[in-house]
C-alpha cells in the first residue's frame, strides 16, 4: 500500500515501498514477529547470509587495520566529496556495505596505498 506522493527521492533520502534484495527482506522477516512455540522452526541455512555477517561490528585488529587502510586510501587533494558520485553508481547499499568490508579485508601490499597511487578499485 503505497503512500501518495511523499516527496521525490533525493540523493540523501531514498524511499521504497518494499524491501528489495535479500538483506533487506531478511531485515523485515527474520527473527521479527510473534514468537510461537512452534513444532519446528525453519532456519535459513544455506541461503547466502554474507550481508548479515557484514552487519556485525567486531572491534578487532582486522577492523582497525581496515579503517587505517581506508583512511590511507583517501585522496586528500579532493576538495569535493567526489566519492559520493562513485558510491551512488554502486547500486544497493547493503551489497556496497559488504563490498566495503570485503575490500578493506583484501590483501593489500604494504606501502602501496599512498597519495601517489591514484588507482581506485571501485
Amino acid at each position: 500500500m503505497a503512500i501518495a506522493t511523499r516527496g521525490t527521492s533525493s540523493n540523501y533520502l531514498q524511499r521504497a515501498p518494499s524491501p528489495s534484495g535479500l538483506a533487506e527482506v531478511l531485515d523485515v522477516i527474520l527473527d521479527k514477529g510473534l514468537v510461537i512455540d512452534a513444532y519446528v522452526r525453519v532456519s535459513v541455512i544455506g541461503i547466502e547470509v554474507l550481508t548479515i555477517d557484514a552487519r556485525i561490528v567486531i572491534a578487532s585488529v582486522d577492523t582497525y587495520l581496515r579503517f587505517a587502510e581506508a583512511v590511507n586510501r583517501l585522496d586528500l587533494a579532493q576538495t569535493e566529496t567526489a566519492g559520493i558520485e562513485e558510491l551512488r553508481d554502486g547500486g544497493k547499499s547493503a551489497k556496497r556495505k559488504s563490498e566495503g568490508a570485503l575490500e578493506g579485508a583484501k590483501e593489500k601490499i604494504p606501502g602501496m596505498s599512498s597519495d601517489k597511487d591514484k588507482e581506485r578499485s571501485r
Partner: peptide, 15 residues
C-alpha cells in the same frame, strides 16, 4: 537534509 552529504538515508515502507 541536515546530515547530508555525510549520511544518506533509505526508508522502506509502509511495512
Amino acid at each position: 537534509r541536515e546530515l547530508q552529504p555525510v549520511l544518506r538515508f533509505e526508508v522502506i515502507g509502509p511495512l
